[in-house]
Structure formats: structure tokens, C-alpha cells
């Protein structure tokens, strides 16, 4: 047992806890100072978690097969960038992006059609709501059987997974514009398409972005899990399942790090885009 590093980690924890307590009590009037503090607190918390993790794994000599320490994982990441990049390219750039684009686009178009035809809305929406709650991931083996081992089958899984959240959210969003605003469009003698483009789709944007955000996580999960069912010898899901088998847990954590980075970055990108598109929404006006 390596008690020195453990004690250091615990001391760091106590210090960070104390600092965060003080920071959270600060009454700042807003502005850049408050923003920095609001960013600093979660960062400190995250750093503390990593330090504790390092302290516990090294301090208690936990075998790396169970839980590798962050420094080991980082070493693995920096030493195998090329493998990680190849996996990322196969899974994210090919399967996830293609499937995500197709699934979201087709869900959006379907929502506009469903919105136009009330009969379809009554018929398709309950089914859409049901499917959105189903374990859609289960179609992965079927898709692998149909579309082969390469990225096409993963993209197909992603399409099916992202379609229904997009459909349900967009339909809800198209109903979000107020009666007053619609009446205004009517007094301007605007036709269906003008009302759609100028009022209803902009008004639906918060809902659409909600679906886009949900889908960005779902797409990554779908592609990775689909790779468990069969894949060429590259891809994040393939790497995870084989390295688990070979007990190279640090490599698995490296892949998880890449996946988490990709997930958070795409989420952040979508959030920025949302802010730019729906600048008029009450939640962004201060």
C-alpha cells in the first residue's frame, strides 16, 4: 500500500471541498467574475474526482485489470493515438455522422408530412411514442445481417434510433406556435408554406434542437453497440469488446475517453448552434 499518495489525494479533496464551499457562498453580481466562478466550481469538482481516483487506485494498489489509474489511461491515450483515430474515424465519421444526418432529416420530413395530415398524426404519433420507448438497440443484429459488417449497418441502426425522437419532437414543436401568431400570418394572407417557413419551423426550433441533442448521444451509443454484433477489425465498439476480452482495460478506458470527448463536443456544438438559431427564445434573453 502506498499511503503517501492516498493521503495527498485525501488532503486535496478536503482542500477542494473547502474551496468550493467558499466559492459557492460568494455573492457575485454577475458579469465575467460570476461566470468564471460558475465554471471554476464544476472544474474543481472534476479535478478532485480524478485526483481521488488516482489516489485510490495507486494508494490501494488496485490491479489495473479492475480499474486503471487516470495517469495510466492518459499514457495509453498518448501512446496509441493512431489506433484511436482509426477507430474514431470508422465509428464516428462514417457510421454516426451518416446515420445521424439521415435519421434526423427523415424524421423531420416525416414530421412535416404527419403534421399536414391529421389522420396520420392520430395514427402514427401513438406508435412513434411507443417506439421511442422501445429498446430499439435490439435491431442491431438484424441490421448487421442485412447491411453487412461495415459501417453501413451501424448507420442503419443509427437512422432507426434517431428517427423517432426527431419525429415526436418536431411534431410537438410544429404545434408550439401560438394561435395569435397564426392568426397574424392569416391576416397577412400567407399560405401554408409561408406560415410553415416563417413562423412554425422557427417556433419549433427549441424542440428540434432538443431532439438533435438527444439524438447525438443516442447515435454514438447505437453505433458502438451495433459493433458488438459484428464489424471489420476497426471501430470503437470492436476495440472495446476485444480489449475487454484481452483484459487491456486501460485501452477500453482510452476509447471511453474518446467517446466521451466526442459526445461532449458534439453536444456543446449543438448547444452553441441552438443559441445562435433560437436567440429569440426566453431562456436565452437576459
Amino acid at each position: 500500500m502506498n499511503s503517501g499518495i492516498l493521503v495527498t489525494a485525501l488532503v486535496f479533496w478536503a482542500a477542494a471541498w473547502f474551496a468550493n464551499n467558499r466559492l459557492a457562498r460568494l455573492q457575485l453580481a454577475g458579469g465575467p467574475a460570476a461566470q468564471t466562478v460558475n465554471l471554476l466550481i464544476p472544474t474543481l469538482f472534476g479535478v478532485t474526482l480524478i485526483v481521488l481516483w488516482e489516489g485510490i487506485t495507486v494508494g490501494f494498489n488496485i490491479p489495473s485489470v479492475l480499474l486503471p489509474s487516470p495517469s495510466m489511461i492518459w499514457e495509453r491515450i498518448t501512446s496509441s493515438v493512431d489506433i484511436l483515430w482509426a477507430d474514431f474515424y470508422q465509428t464516428f465519421m462514417k457510421a454516426v455522422l451518416a446515420g445521424y444526418a439521415m435519421g434526423c432529416a427523415s424524421g423531420f420530413v416525416a414530421a412535416i408530412i404527419v403534421d399536414r395530415v391529421p389522420f396520420l398524426r392520430k395514427g402514427l404519433l401513438p406508435i412513434g411514442n411507443l417506439v421511442a420507448a422501445l429498446p430499439v438497440i435490439g435491431i442491431a443484429p438484424i441490421m448487421v445481417m442485412w447491411f453487412g459488417f461495415d459501417w453501413h449497418s451501424k448507420a442503419a441502426v443509427v437512422v432507426v434510433m434517431t428517427f423517432f425522437p426527431m419525429l415526436v419532437n418536431t411534431v410537438a414543436g410544429l404545434g408550439a406556435s401560438g394561435a395569435m401568431e397564426r392568426d397574424l400570418m392569416r391576416t397577412h394572407a400567407s399560405n401554408y408554406w409561408q406560415t410553415l417557413m416563417k413562423l412554425r419551423i422557427p417556433a419549433a426550433m427549441p424542440f428540434i434542437f432538443n431532439a438533435l441533442k438527444i439524438n447525438s448521444t443516442l447515435a454514438l451509443i447505437g453505433a458502438i453497440v451495433a459493433e458488438f454484433f459484428g464489424t471489420p477489425i476497426v471501430g470503437m465498439g470492436f476495440r472495446i469488446s476485444t480489449e475487454v476480452g484481452r483484459m487491456n482495460i486501460d485501452m477500453v478506458w482510452a476509447e471511453i475517453f474518446v467517446a466521451a470527448l466526442a459526445g461532449s463536443l458534439s453536444y456543446g456544438l449543438l448547444a452553441l448552434l441552438e443559441r445562435a438559431v433560437t436567440f429569440w427564445h426566453p431562456s436565452y434573453r437576459s
Binding site: 459557492a24 464544476p42 454514438l220 476509447e255
Partner: peptide, 19 residues
């Protein structure tokens, strides 16, 4: 609230099913 909430949200951008 300030330290945990952002991490709860971040934890879901991680494709946890994959691990």
C-alpha cells in the same frame, strides 16, 4: 448544485451503454 449538476449532465453525453 454548482459542482454536481454540470457533471450529471456531462455524464449522459458519455455513451455509457458502450462500456
Amino acid at each position: 448544485d454548482k459542482s454536481l449538476m454540470p457533471w450529471i449532465i456531462t455524464s449522459q453525453t458519455i455513451p455509457i451503454l458502450a462500456i
